[in-house]
Amino acid sequence: MELNIHFRKINNVLSVFIEGEIDTFTAPKLREKLESIVISQERLIELDLSKVTYMDSTGLGVFVALYKNVTRENGNLKLVGLTARIKRLFNITGLSELMNIEVGAKVE
């Protein structure tokens, strides 16, 4: 169960590439990495989930926490590259109506 997280910053857009499985075991690592972001310093935080192969509700919790923080600090958060399975999770939980979400592969 591996989870890799990379940051890349271009033009004040912080892209976070998440790769692997997000579950009870890997979620703390993801949370820690995302908490290290200084929200006020980013124009936009973009999470790329196209390489996430599995995610359970613990993973959802990490994104909800980030969303709450970003909203509190008037930042912008966007989730991109969601696979059908993950998109369904956001749909069912009602989060897709709340958060800025883009489905499918991102054109670079």
């Binding site: 909800v64 969303y67 709450k68 939980t93 009602g94 989060l95 109506e97 709340l98």
Partner: peptide, 9 residues
């Protein structure tokens, strides 16, 4: 039946 998770907003 759509509805947001409890405790988010």
């Amino acid at each position: 039946c759509k509805g947001l998770l409890l405790g988010v907003m």
